[in-house]
Write a protein that binds this DNA or RNA. Structure first.
Lengths: 163, 163
DNA sequence: TATTGTTATACTCTATAACTATA
DNA sequence: TATAGTTATAGAGTATAACAATA
């Protein structure tokens, strides 16, 4: 059953101060300057740390937030569909969902059509938490927009869309 | 001394096929559509998987590659400087360097000025491997450029630079 | 006191294999 | 036989704390 095995995070999701992310002027990056992957990684570190810090009041990781958002917008989704949508391993999703279920934010209902599937849906408290989380996430995004400039923010969203 | 403790990777760096990364049309992403972090993560997954696959002949992870590049371009760097430059934890860098040292690609020399520091430098085989790796990485980057279009590639590099 | 390299611990995340129950 | 959910395992990566040697 694995009912309450490893379900709850022992420690709340941590967020360190986004450290000064650009390299010191004195160290040459050489070939890294031409690699998109290098700058994407740095951007990811910065953005995720800021996101985690901003969402601390609701104690949701980026992955948990994305699960709540997509589940809230697609009633009765199966775990496999959710995993494929968010590029999260099905195996990992199991424990992630356990935690959200334990917190009373989400339910796994038996699928009427297919006995193997779970139909995922948010509970009323889940909806409330999601609404709070969305407001905080919007604040995070607004901070990003301010930092980057609205133009660049829009441009990045569009340019990264089809990866 | 921890000479050969946990130093070598048991399994070569894996790279799965970049799976179809955009979500199925039928599942609504809702609020995620407005979040840069979501698309940055997806881009990172894609780019890193492609990088790992392309560099398989030299068996170097993105982190190892970046360490070789920066060490090769900055003689006598300390571990702390390297860690800060690449946003890798000092503690993690220790084992990463052990592996590269064991493979004979890199040396930790005593710093003449400061007894606490190591002066990092590539060995001749390290330089050879780095040259091969750079050629492969350039091929990876060219693939990205083709996929995105030269304009968008350039634009992304510029836009992500100051994170 | 502070910093460098190091070890240790705990947790997240990725990748895989295998099992069960359903289909 | 295939798929959905699950468990388990191994490794990478992140975050912290603490320690010895050196500054």
């Amino acid at each position: 059953m694995g009912k309450n095995a490893n379900s709850r995070r022992a420690v709340p999701y941590r967020a360190t101060q986004p450290k000064r992310s650009s390299a010191q002027a004195s160290v040459a990056l050489d070939a890294l300057n031409g690699h998109l992957g290098y700058f994407i990684r740095r951007a990811q570190i910065w953005v995720f740390q800021d996101f985690i810090r901003t969402l601390k009041p609701v104690d949701l990781s980026p992955a948990e937030y994305s699960v709540l958002v997509v589940t809230g917008a697609n009633r009765g989704l199966s775990q496999a569909e959710l995993a494929a949508t968010l590029a999260i391993e099905r195996a990992r999703l199991v424990r992630l969902l356990h935690r959200l279920e334990e917190r009373g934010l989400l339910q796994r209902l038996p699928s009427s059509a297919d006995g193997r599937r779970h139909a995922l849906q948010l509970t009323p408290p889940g909806r409330t938490t999601l609404a709070r989380a969305k407001a905080l996430a919007a604040r995070h995004e607004q901070g990003l927009r301010t930092r980057l400039g609205a133009e660049r923010h829009k441009l990045l969203l569009a340019a990264l869309r089809d990866f």
